[in-house]
Design a protein around this nucleic acid. Structure first.
Length: 455
RNA sequence: GUGGUUGUAGCUCAGUUGGUUAGAGCAUCAGAUUGUGGUUCUGAGGGUCGUGGGUUCGAGACCCAUCAUCCACCCCA
């Protein structure tokens, strides 16, 4: 006998949790469809080579790899040994593993587009809501299996796509009743900054460091930059850059003064203000030049969403990528996309108690079981109610009333229908509202038309 | 991958410098109550003390390892 358990960082979801998660999924899906996106699902596993090299060095380490079958087969033993030796050196080997669990939804989507670009109508707008897996160490808001909900559009360079994505973020979080901050920045601005601070190869070091500003503070960021070899004059520039505060327009114009000599930076600034002008009243939408985003395939505007009410990592992120399918041999399909982290959204909604009370949709009516013949009669009436789309169940055995009432309480069932010996003989039934404690006896033939209030 | 925290009944947790047969509340089940629940009262069941080693006359407690948990770092949703 083994003690039952589930792998680290994974969870079972009971009925209540599934319902609440369903509420989040539905909210997100409704908005996705409202904006004209179509669903897509891809396999849980991809060929390993589809995934490796797409998420940076750190990302590669976090990909869950699947061991090949048949390694122990005598005819494979030499190959298996060799493959294992390669694995010990940190090299992937097809003879050991050639498949892996999906790490996000964007790369599988790019793979799908590359495979099917001949059949798709562009711009192709898809949404996808599926689990992804990361071999990370679990902590607050971080799981090894979690759901992402992505929208992406490919085959269009229009900034209207980014405008709409801000709209999607805004609408979803508004519907969920959450106060969030939608931060927007441009990779173009970041690379212009990097160009002034030693060149494009400095981009990663710089962005990783400044991204931590609100977390570790200016001094620590400067320390980190210095340790990466940033010179004092460049450091001063970055400090001025990070010091830009104020309302969005002011920030943008001050950044223009600072980096305006760079055409690339001007482009980035212009794109941000273009998107902002479509959302004049959107609360929490702000330009944030410290925003970096880890994934190295972003090329234009980038987004990130954080809760203003709870301490939690980002609830979503995304941006523009100009050549994602190029990784799969199909160039010139630009795109943009954003992602929602359902599990983190769940944790925040739970912490703030923002789930609506009526998201519980269990059984509405419990038929009591009062004996063999009584139950048989009750069953027929129950089926009639089910035909009217009322959620019913009948107690599984003829237990004491006490027990059946307690069962109804536990499952928060609002109504009981009792057909006992007397009722059966008289052609009646008792309908009881369990929340009010009121009951009435009605002719059983009126049950099928009975209105069960508020359940 | 690095560092720390916690792990005792189904759940939440007590358990003294190592000392007899490991406790409480809630939950469960039974009864008080053979057709009316949520309250109350009585009683019962339920523990390899995460797992495996070690120290000791003696370990739930101390040491080592391991697994899980939560938290931080790295990174990220």
């Amino acid at each position: 006998m083994v003690k039952p358990s589930i792998p680290q960082g994974t969870r079972d979801f009971g009925p209540e949790v599934v319902r609440k998660r369903g509420y989040i999924f539905k909210t997100i899906r409704d908005v996705f469809e409202l904006y004209g996106y179509q669903p897509l699902e891809t396999p849980a596993m991809e060929n390993l080579e589809t995934l490796t090299g797409k998420y940076g060095e750190e990302g590669d380490k976090l990909i869950f790899k699947i061991l090949n079958n048949g390694l122990q087969d005598p005819k494979n033993r030499d190959k298996s040994r060799e493959a294992f030796d390669n694995a010990l050196e940190g090299k992937a080997d097809r003879n050991l593993t050639e498949r892996a669990l999906r790490y996000d939804l964007t790369i599988p989507f790019a793979r799908y587009v590359a495979m099917n670009h001949g059949q798709l109508t562009f711009p192709y707008k898809r949404y996808q809501m599926q689990p992804v897996w990361r071999a990370d160490r679990p902590q607050k808001g971080r799981y090894r299996e979690f759901y992402q909900c992505d929208v992406d559009v490919v085959g269009s360079r229009s900034l209207l796509n980014e405008v709409e994505m801000v709209g999607i973020y805004g609408d979803v979080f508004e519907r969920l009743g959450m106060k969030v901050e939608i931060r927007i920045n441009s990779r173009k601005i970041l690379s212009a900054l990097a160009a002034l601070c030693g060149g494009p190869h400095r981009m990663t070091d710089i962005t990783v460091a400044i991204d931590k500003l609100d977390k570790i503070g200016l001094e620590k960021v400067k320390e980190e930059l210095t340790s990466k070899g940033i010179e004092p004059a460049q450091l001063a520039l970055i400090e001025t850059y990070l010091g830009i505060e104020g309302p969005n327009e002011e920030k943008l114009s001050r950044l223009g003064n600072l980096l305006g000599d760079s055409p690339l930076a001007r482009e980035g600034i212009q794109e941000i203000s273009y998107v902002l002008q479509f959302h004049p009243g959107r609360e929490g939408l702000q330009a944030d030049f410290t925003l970096a985003r880890g994934l190295n395939y972003y090329t234009g505007l980038i987004f990130e969403v954080k809760s203003l009410q709870a301490r939690m990592g980002s609830l979503g992120g995304g941006g523009r990528y100009d050549d994602l399918t190029g990784l799969f041999g199909v160039p010139d399909i630009p795109g943009a996309g954003i992602s929602f982290g359902v599990d983190r959204i769940y944790d925040v909604l739970e912490e703030l108690q923002l789930f609506p009370g009526d998201s519980f949709t269990g059984t509405q009516v419990l038929f009591f079981n009062m004996g063999e013949a009584e139950a048989a009669a009750a069953f027929g009436h129950m089926q009639a109610l089910r035909g009217r789309n009322i959620r019913c169940e009948i107690y599984h055995e003829a237990a004491k009333l006490d027990k059946q009432f307690k069962y109804a309480d536990k499952k928060r069932i609002a109504h009981a229908v009792i057909i006992g010996t007397n009722e059966l003989a008289q052609g009646t039934c008792v309908v009881k509202d369990l929340r009010r404690g009121e009951q009435l006896t009605i002719p059983v033939n009126r049950l099928s038309g009975f209105v069960f209030e508020g359940s």
